[in-house]
């Protein structure tokens, strides 16, 4: 049996909104480590990895490891029926082919339950070895989203280059070219507004802007985003979910031949 009570129900709504366009179906795994998911997009270029640790839940009960296959669009439809301030509880009985989402209003005057059919999903998992990245950039998530959106009106791919100068986002299209350079900036009022660049080696990687734009849907989950980059390796784009865990995207770079 499984019962997970999340006081910040709005968080789960935001998680679903950030991944439902990238991935259709996914197994949610529940274990002592937390409530997690690893799923690949249909073109096998991006992987989303989510972890919500048990400490973030008011009640985290799961007496054995459970994997629940869900259609993310259907799950998002159900979670849209929860208010942003609602408490969300997930419940599943042993051996059941359904999961129940219970929504409680903060004042406890409205309680709703939605039962959703589970599905069997054969998902293969990727192993992500620890890597020493050539460069790690932390910047405001809204700024990163803005740059990806702006560049996608000009070109289809973005070259992300980290040098001593800063981090450069470049694109090229039929109408012209665009370059945005962000320099390290720690002289800010709030720490989340800082841009911090750790560079061991210069690195330059090319990515499809369609994917980059898709993963910036996680922006409402965190004020900052971290880009971990190494030559010839997928980028890791991480949004930390305060005190609970993270949502990470692994995105394969394009390669010139």
């Amino acid at each position: 049996m499984l019962e997970l009570r999340l006081v910040q129900g709005g968080l789960l709504k935001k998680v679903l909104e950030s991944i439902k366009d990238l991935v259709n179906d996914a197994n949610f795994d529940c274990s002592a480590t937390g409530f997690s998911l690893q799923a690949m997009d249909s073109s096998q270029v991006a992987v989303v990895a989510l972890l919500l640790r048990p400490e973030g839940f008011e009640r985290y009960w799961c007496d054995r490891n459970i994997s629940m296959g869900m259609n993310l669009n259907n799950m998002a439809k159900m979670l849209k029926c929860a208010g942003n301030d609602d408490i969300i509880t997930l419940k599943a009985e042993d051996g059941s082919d359904t999961v129940t989402f219970m929504f409680e209003s903060p004042t406890q005057d409205k309680i709703a339950d939605f039962e959703m059919k589970l599905m069997d999903i054969n998902s293969e998992r990727l192993g992500f070895p620890e890597a020493d990245y050539h460069a790690i950039v932390r910047m405001p998530s809204s700024e990163f989203a803005r740059i990806c959106k702006d560049l996608s009106s000009i070109g289809n791919t973005v070259v992300i280059s980290v040098t001593k100068e800063g981090v450069r986002f470049s694109t090229r299209g039929d109408i012209g070219t665009a370059n945005v350079v962000c320099r390290q900036n720690t002289a800010v009022d709030k720490p989340e507004e800082a841009t911090i660049i750790e560079m061991n080696e210069p690195v330059s990687l090319t990515f499809g802007l369609r994917y980059m734009n898709s993963l910036t849907k996680a922006t409402p989950l965190s004020n900052t985003v971290t880009l971990s980059l190494s030559s010839g390796l997928p980028a890791v784009v991480e949004y930390r979910i305060a005190e609970m865990g993270y949502i990470r995207f692994y995105l394969a770079p394009k390669i010139e031949e």
Binding site: Q44, L126, G127, A252, K254, I255
Partner: peptide, 14 residues
């Protein structure tokens, strides 16, 4: 020519 490899080219599958 710019190619888009899939993630399995980089990481092992379990």
């Amino acid at each position: 020519l710019i190619l888009q490899p899939c993630l399995m080219c980089f990481y092992p599958l379990y």
